[in-house]
Amino acid sequence: MKAFTYERATTPAEAAAAAARTPGAKFIAGGTNLLDLMKLQIETPRHLIDVNRLGLDRIEATPDGGLRIGALVRNTDLAADARVRRDYGVLSRALLAGASGQLRNKATTAGNLLQRTRCPYFYDTTKPCNKREPGAGCSAIGGFNRNLAIVGTSEHCIATHPSDMAVAMRVLDAQVETVTADGAKRAIPIADFHTLPDATPHVETTLEPGELITAVTLPRPLGGTHVYRKVRDRASYAFALVSVAAVLQPDGTGRLAFGGLAHKPWRVEAAERRIGQGARAVAGAVLDGARTTPQNAFKTLLVERTLDAVFTSARA
């Protein structure tokens, strides 16, 4: 690990200002992804700003009937919150499907949104990776890419976003609240928060330099049946091959978001209008324009079958 200086921020605005004025600075919250990457020298911050003691660890009701989740709320505490379990079951289920008990105790809501891809070539510093080193090339295209993206890809990157939580946040239309270096606050719809790789795969979100996430807000509860179904290579503690977050209503309408398919949580609202036509019709619309490789082409059928299982379980 490269050496770095360290400070404990006292307010969110001060943390954002410190990050903007200090070259090579990064925020550290749970640290479960950042420290892993620092040990491998994939991330080499020269300065860490510890945001763990900013008091952003509460879950509060919002005036419009939703929930405001502090950026530092740990995954375990968010999944176990009585209101989340009752009104946003898809979010509890997604969180509990991710990582291990130890990691969920440490990992934070904001950090989960900002975690980096687990593409094997991003982690392998002996191989080119446009995400790690812009312009170097992509080793995954033509390499081992069984678990990589099939939609929203570019000729520069086929990495996936690894989060389960973010998929549920997408189906719930959460908003990401931030404070910028000049103290201004803004709310970013989750749909606009993560970016596609295009020609700049090293850019993963629409955050500005130094901008700090302070909370994630959920709109008022949607009701309906909440399902999070994750398919992976082992029964626990593995990243998704394909995952589906669903909120399905008794009248046959619903919302669907997908993990394991793209550089961001994947949602195609037009596909949701086909829910009544069954899994194949929905999958076809969700995967419109998909570009698969011989290794990851299985994901197209897996999306359809996972959707079918979700629809079946929701009817039960």
Partner: peptide, 13 residues
């Protein structure tokens, strides 16, 4: 009282 991976946390935190 909460279990964590001590390898993925800095002592200073």
């Amino acid at each position: 009282g909460r279990r964590i991976n001590s390898c993925l946390s800095l002592a200073v935190m």
